[in-house]
Write a protein that binds this DNA or RNA. Sequence first.
DNA 1: CGGTGGGTTGAACGGCGTCAAACCTAGTGG
DNA 2: CCACTAGGTTTGACGCCGTTCAACCCACCG
Lengths: 255, 255
Amino acid sequence: MSQAERQFHGVRITESQNHAGSRSSAKAACSNCSLHELCLSGGLDEVDLEAVDQIVAQRRRIPKGEALFGVGEPFRSLYAVRFGLFKTEGLMPDGREQVTGFQMAGDLLGLDGISSDRHFCKAVALEDSEVCVMPFTEMESLSRAVPALQHNLHRVMSREMVQDRNLLVLLGSAQAAERLAAFLLNLSQRQAQRGYSASEFILRMTRDEIGSYLGLTPETVSRTFTKLQKNGLIEVAQKHIRIPDLAALRTLIGC
Amino acid sequence: MSQAERQFHGVRITESQNHAGSRSSAKAACSNCSLHELCLSGGLDEVDLEAVDQIVAQRRRIPKGEALFGVGEPFRSLYAVRFGLFKTEGLMPDGREQVTGFQMAGDLLGLDGISSDRHFCKAVALEDSEVCVMPFTEMESLSRAVPALQHNLHRVMSREMVQDRNLLVLLGSAQAAERLAAFLLNLSQRQAQRGYSASEFILRMTRDEIGSYLGLTPETVSRTFTKLQKNGLIEVAQKHIRIPDLAALRTLIGC
DNA sequence: CGGTGGGTTGAACGGCGTCAAACCTAGTGG
DNA sequence: CCACTAGGTTTGACGCCGTTCAACCCACCG
């Protein structure tokens, strides 16, 4: 367990991380970043990569539990998660909050702020995390010069929309077990993309947060976990999840 | 009633629409379009507007019930609704379909296709409609030359995400009456933006489609309508809706 | 070792889905 | 102009899934 936990952190962050404080003036260097194929700089050549490096001039540390940005704050930059994990939450007019997504290394944060120059959601670090700060006006002007970057940006935004739509369909027409299965499979897949095990991982969010994300109460999440376990589809031990048969779990959501 | 229906069509489409067939070779002319402030060309100057006109070279008629594009079809263009109404639907792995949005005049369709060069949802006309066809590669290259257009595109994509998020929060944590109220208020607001009455309009989608969109069954939609009517919050007569007190309805969803 | 926050489990309730039947409306053809 | 039909809508009865409220448990940490 602590084995998996350790494997989960460290690793794959190739650069030195020995800065104290929450700001780092070191160059971010997409060129060196092991995530850059997942991120905005994927498929760019040497020259263009360096231009992007210019823009991603700053990184920022966010300790566990702190917000990267909050609802209504002015929007200036996009953020790429370097390591760690975030949740984004929107809020209902009456004040209730709901988790709308979990962002891990390589994912982008802040895109929904473009529409009105204000952030529409809150982004909170679920563990000590670091992001690359990408000032958006500079991003836009560089993407005018570099078509590949421009297209990457569009692809990423579009991908975000597709994800939201998928979640939407899930919330609209699936029941508890299907939602949870889809959630686990989604995590599994993203782990795999990042070079980790697809069949075994640690949930770094609480049952509450999972429930909020899936439109369920924490009690239902817990009950459904044990139910899936009784059916032999997953093994749960607190935050540790194992999926012995991915295909079997997939059939539950109909694919 | 037929009074409202008539007001609802016609009007505000300033150009001549006398083309037969489903394709029109006439220039689309954003410059003349009464919607252009809502659409992609908002805020552009004369010169840039003409450049956009070059790209939006084609319009396409979609008769009621027909699909503009389907799931998995190759993505080439974005579409701006000129008049009429569309629904987009995604599908669950098991084949169930769910409505993910309704697009009216000035709204964009197809953005989710960018991420993988394939459409991820189906777009169906709910009444005889017309769209402007905007080839995406040309769109991208023009937006490299015209910063204002580029920013508009980004804003529109971001707006789309914000809408999806709002719906997400709604589906995740609101109950039937709140969902329906939010839906009606959203329609009301969009009508108002387009110059129509905010307090009285025609629902051009079926209860089934509304239910699918809100994650409810058509029966529940119907029941909830009559419940809201009994409470004096709305007046329903088939497809005709009147909201005597917008503020009152807003309090129901907590704002 | 006791405290605290998250997690699990149980029992009772209720909102919404399901199934079924009646109704209403628009469109069609006689 | 009316009868007939097909789709959509409404309404009712019933049952289930997930919520609610509460107690308990467990892991972690001072």
